[in-house]
C-alpha cells in the first residue's frame, strides 16, 4: 500500500511516499528558515504563504523521487491536528484535492502520532506494545505509554516550555541560528559539561513532569552576565542539564510502569549525546532504546504516511470534511497533554 504523506503543521513543507508503513520511497522537505529568520521566530501568516507557494512542488518532487505518479497512490495522509492552524489548512486542502481527484482514501493524522510512529516504521516486529515514547520537539516534551495502535496514556509532560523550544531560544540568544538544538550540539562538542552548574528543575520529583523555563532563564542570565563567556562550555553545560532531565524522567517512568522498551521521537531525537545518554542509562536499567532514522526525526511527511498505514487499518478513512485543530486530544483515549484552555 503506497501512501503519500503530507505535513505542513509548522514551518516545513513535507511530502513523502511510503510503502506498507516502512519502505520510504521518498521524503522531501522544503525549509522556510530564511523566510522567518529576520523575525526571530516562526510567523504563522508567513508560514502559511510559504506552504501555499511550495506545496505543489513538494508533491511533484515526492512522486518523482518515488518514481510513481498520482495514479499509483493507494491513499493520502495529512497532519490535520496539532500545529499552526494557518499552516495545517494548506496541507489539508492539498490532501483533500488529491483524495478527490484520485478517488483514494483520505487519512487525517495527529502530528504527534507521526512522531510516535516514526519509531515503528520498519520496526513493528521488534517493538511490542506497550512501550514508552519520549517525544522531544520544538513544541512538545512528553512521555506517553503506547498501549496499542492509536491508544496512548500520558505519563508525563512539560508544565511550561518544551525542551526543543528552550534549545531554540538559547541558540537565538547566542545568535547561533536555527534549529537551535543542532547549533548547540556542535558547540557543546568542544565544551565542558560541568563548567556551569545549571538548575535541573523537578529532577528529584518522582514523576514524569518536566519544567524547562527556569533552566532557560538561568542560561540566558549567564549569557547576559558575561559577554566574553566560553560559548562551548555554556552550550555543553546547558545541553547536559537538558539531557539529565530527559533521561532521568524517562528512566523513572519506565521503571515505575515496567516498560522495557523506550522510543525517542521528535527533532531533539537527533541529538547524539542524548541518544548516547539514553543508551547508557538503558543498560543500567535493563531497558532497550529505539531511536528513529535520522530523516524521520524532524517534521516530515514520511512519518505521517507511516502512521497512516497502521492507523488506517484500525480506524479506516476520514471524510472529505475533516477539520484542522491547533491543539487536539491524542488517540482513542483523547489524551490531553496541554493546558485545558488550549482545547476549547
Amino acid at each position: 500500500m503506497r501512501i503519500l504523506g503530507i505535513d505542513t503543521s509548522c514551518d516545513d513543507t513535507g511530502g513523502a511516499v511510503v510503502e506498507d508503513g516502512h519502505k520510504v520511497l521518498s521524503n522531501v522537505i522544503a525549509s522556510q528558515y530564511e523566510a522567518h529568520d529576520r523575525f526571530g521566530g516562526i510567523v504563522p501568516v508567513i508560514a502559511a504563504r510559504e506552504h501555499t507557494a511550495k506545496i505543489n512542488f513538494i508533491l511533484e518532487l515526492a512522486l518523482e523521487k518515488a518514481r510513481i505518479s498520482f495514479s499509483d497512490l493507494d491513499a493520502v495522509a495529512v497532519s490535520h491536528h496539532q500545529g499552526l492552524m494557518l499552516s495545517l489548512v494548506v496541507g489539508v486542502s492539498a490532501a483533500k484535492s488529491i483524495a478527490l481527484a484520485c478517488g483514494i482514501p483520505l487519512i487525517g493524522i495527529h502530528h504527534l502520532e507521526g512522531h510516535i510512529y516514526s519509531n515503528l516504521m520498519g520496526r513493528s516486529n521488534e517493538l511490542r506494545f506497550p512501550f514508552l515514547c519520549l517525544t522531544v520537539a520544538g513544541g512538545h516534551t512528553l512521555l506517553l505509554k503506547v498501549i496499542s495502535h492509536g491508544t496512548y496514556e500520558l505519563l508525563g509532560h512539560t508544565r511550561d516550555d518544551a525542551a526543543g523550544e528552550v534549545l531554540d531560544k538559547v541558540a537565538r540568544h547566542l545568535k547561533l541560528g536555527y534549529p537551535g538544538g543542532a547549533a548547540i550540539e556542535r558547540l557543546a562538542e568542544k565544551g565542558n559539561p560541568n563548567a556551569y552548574d545549571f538548575p535541573r528543575p523537578l529532577i528529584n520529583r518522582p514523576d514524569g513532569e518536566f519544567s524547562f523555563s527556569g533552566l532557560k532563564t538561568a542560561v540566558i542570565a549567564a549569557i547576559d552576565r558575561d559577554p566574553d563567556l566560553n560559548q562551548a562550555d555554556l552550550c555543553a553545560s546547558f545541553q547536559q542539564a537538558i539531557i539529565d532531565l530527559l533521561v532521568s524522567k524517562a528512566m523513572h517512568i519506565a521503571k515505575e510502569h515496567q516498560l522495557r522498551q523506550i522510543t525517542l521521537a521528535g527533532g531533539v531525537a537527533l541529538n547524539t549525546p542524548l541518544r548516547k545518554a539514553l543508551q547508557h542509562a538503558a543498560k543500567v536499567h535493563a531497558c532497550e532504546i529505539f531511536t528513529p532514522r535520522s530523516d524521520l526525526c524532524m517534521d516530515n511527511g514520511a512519518m505521517v504516511a507511516g502512521a497512516a498505514y497502521f492507523l488506517y487499518q484500525e480506524r479506516g478513512a476520514d471524510s472529505l470534511n475533516i477539520g484542522t485543530r491547533a491543539n487536539a486530544p491524542l488517540g482513542t483515549t483523547g489524551v490531553r497533554y496541554r493546558h485545558e484552555s488550549k482545547y476549547k
Binding site: A48, N56, S93, K96, S97, L100, A101
Partner: peptide, 19 residues
C-alpha cells in the same frame, strides 16, 4: 482573506496538477 485564498488556491492548483 489570507487563509481563504491559501486554501482555495492550494485546492485548485492541486486539482489542476493531478487532472
Amino acid at each position: 482573506s489570507w487563509t481563504g485564498l491559501n486554501i482555495g488556491v492550494t485546492a485548485a492548483k492541486t486539482l489542476a496538477q493531478i487532472l
